[in-house]
């Protein structure tokens, strides 16, 4: 399967938050802490990416960097698909 675009991952991220009764702001600089996007939500998003692409993500490959904003999450997952 093809890898997902940043926009597609953003849609999935919005869905994760929508299932929690919350909304994803348009601004990539929005702080995860402020929108209540926690490690459970991040993990769920990763599973959704895996389910869409049919490929397991390899989280051991890159060193985990600081992920503080919506944009950080999207960049990280886009990059991870290419590992």
């Amino acid at each position: 399967m093809e890898e997902l675009s940043r926009a597609q991952i953003r849609d999935l991220m919005a869905q994760v938050l929508r299932n929690q009764g919350r909304a994803l702001p348009d601004d990539d600089a929005a702080q995860l802490r402020e929108i209540g996007f926690r490690s459970l939500d991040f993990s769920e998003l990763a599973l959704r990416v895996e389910d869409e692409t049919g490929e397991e993500l390899n989280f051991d490959a890159p060193g985990l960097r600081r992920i503080a904003t919506v944009g950080d999450v999207l960049d990280f997952l886009v990059e991870l698909q290419r590992q």
Partner: peptide, 12 residues
């Protein structure tokens, strides 16, 4: 349980 980043496993 399903393998998941950060948490090890998640409930599915």
């Amino acid at each position: 349980g399903r393998r998941a980043p950060l948490l090890g496993r998640m409930v599915v």
